[in-house]
Amino acid sequence: MFTVTKPYPQEFRDDVVRVARNREPGVGLDQIAKDFGIHFTTLYSWMKKAEEEDGERPGGAAVASAELREAKRRIRLLEQENEVLRRAAAYLSQANLPKMMYPLVRELAGDGIPVTVTCRVLNLARQPYYRWLTNPVTDTELAAAYRANALFDAHVDDPEFGYRYLADEARDAGQGMCARTAWRLCSANGWWSAFGKKRGKNGKKPGPPVHEDLVQRDFTAEAPNQLWLADITEHRTGEGKLYLCAIKDAYSNRIVGYSIDSRMKSRIAVAALNSAVARRGEVVGCVVHTDRGSQFRSRKFVRALNGHGMVGSMGKVGAAGDNAAMESFFALLQKNVLDRRTWTTRQELRIAIVTWLERTYHRRRRQDALGRLTPIEYETIMTTPATLAA
């Protein structure tokens, strides 16, 4: 049994506003509110707040004082300085590349960070830099630095990835290279997979999984918030891949939490879990069953589970049947949304996913396993109104 104790997750609010702003002609806000299971006044207030934040409606954001504008300017300056330090640390860690900082200054300038800010943070004189621009390093050296930067960023985000996966991530970031080039750069800098073969060690194998398999392919629950299933899927768009992490309650097959991102890092799994907890309320003791993906093995995700008083569970390596209930949901999503057409932008696909999920899957698609009821109808009928979640 569970009660409503927390507000709607911010990602859910943003998605509802996106759908409302991109609705088809003739579709009113009242219909959008009904499709997503919220009150009309709630949606109206979200729309109003979004317009104020975007400066489209007179409000607190539109008539910000000079002090607020100055604070924003200083925050932007601090963010630029932090980005300079982060990129400089990555650049200096590349042992096989020359340690001239001017290429980094030019790269940051291309990303919108003023040369004055970069030179001040790195304690460089501007005049020598401008003289260097007339006779820079070779294009080959600069290309190698760009590629190494992209590989380093991917390795920091996902230390479990080997050089082939790092090359894929670098390619998505705009730095394409062959597998041999990626191996050479990773080998020179010691960027090996955390779960790969140990170099120069005693060849120990990776340790046991983070959690034991507590489900054993029995994807049933007698009450809400007893067993949740989680997994991640991906789909290509004209702008690159879009990743969806979804969490399903085995009791009603309802997607209780999700997160959508352009990168498949541990944060997407943590965000989906926090979203589900925010919408469902009391979840202490709930079993969260996943595969052995690195996102679910990460310390951030395990820490989030422990913080909410939840219990982790994992299937075997390469055994798709150990999480078959989530695989079937993603197959349904693939058939009804992802493969229906070609998607130009990530936002276009994101709106389509959340619209199908909230409007069709939750409220219109009847399921045999639920007695020909929808997930929302099943929870409404089988759970007393006083204990229903949002």
Rank of each mutant, 00 (worst) to 15 (best):
131 R>D: 12
169 E>R: 14
168 D>W: 01
156 V>E: 15
163 Y>P: 09
148 A>I: 07
156 V>T: 15
169 E>A: 15
155 H>G: 05
173 A>I: 00
127 Q>G: 01
156 V>Y: 03
130 Y>S: 08
145 A>T: 07
180 R>S: 01
123 N>E: 12
166 L>F: 08
124 L>H: 04
179 A>S: 05
130 Y>W: 14
131 R>Q: 13
163 Y>S: 12
176 G>Q: 14
133 L>T: 09
131 R>I: 04
145 A>S: 15
146 Y>D: 14
126 R>I: 13
145 A>I: 07
173 A>M: 11
159 P>E: 00
179 A>E: 10
179 A>H: 04
127 Q>I: 00
150 A>R: 04
131 R>Y: 12
155 H>Q: 11
155 H>M: 11
129 Y>P: 06
179 A>Y: 10
159 P>L: 01
143 A>K: 05
163 Y>T: 06
177 M>L: 11
136 P>I: 00
150 A>Q: 06
145 A>F: 01
150 A>G: 04
145 A>H: 04
136 P>Y: 03
175 Q>I: 00
177 M>H: 03
164 R>A: 04
171 R>G: 11
167 A>T: 09
175 Q>Y: 06
142 L>N: 11
158 D>P: 00
156 V>N: 10
158 D>C: 07
137 V>P: 01
157 D>H: 06
157 D>F: 04
141 E>F: 00
149 N>M: 13
175 Q>G: 02
127 Q>K: 14
128 P>G: 09
154 A>I: 06
172 D>K: 13
137 V>R: 10
173 A>P: 02
161 F>I: 02
139 D>I: 12
166 L>W: 09
158 D>N: 08
172 D>A: 09
123 N>F: 08
141 E>P: 00
133 L>C: 12
135 N>M: 07
163 Y>C: 12
171 R>T: 10
153 D>N: 13
133 L>K: 13
128 P>N: 11
134 T>A: 14
159 P>N: 00
150 A>V: 07
126 R>M: 10
130 Y>D: 04
164 R>K: 10
180 R>H: 01
157 D>N: 02
139 D>G: 11
177 M>K: 04
150 A>Y: 10
154 A>R: 06
135 N>Y: 03
142 L>G: 02
130 Y>T: 07
129 Y>D: 02
156 V>F: 08
148 A>G: 11
171 R>Q: 09
159 P>I: 04
164 R>I: 13
166 L>H: 07
150 A>T: 03
162 G>Q: 05
172 D>N: 13
160 E>A: 06
167 A>S: 10
165 Y>T: 13
137 V>A: 09
155 H>N: 13
171 R>M: 05
140 T>C: 02
136 P>C: 02
163 Y>G: 11
154 A>H: 00
165 Y>V: 02
162 G>T: 13
169 E>Y: 02
154 A>Y: 02
127 Q>N: 09
166 L>N: 05
124 L>M: 15
142 L>R: 15
178 C>W: 00
152 F>W: 09
123 N>W: 03
146 Y>M: 15
135 N>F: 05
174 G>S: 04
167 A>I: 06
144 A>S: 11
169 E>S: 08
130 Y>G: 04
169 E>I: 01
142 L>T: 15
168 D>C: 08
153 D>Y: 14
170 A>T: 07
175 Q>A: 12
127 Q>M: 00
131 R>S: 13
151 L>K: 05
151 L>V: 03
160 E>R: 12
137 V>W: 09
161 F>A: 12
170 A>K: 03
125 A>I: 01
136 P>Q: 09
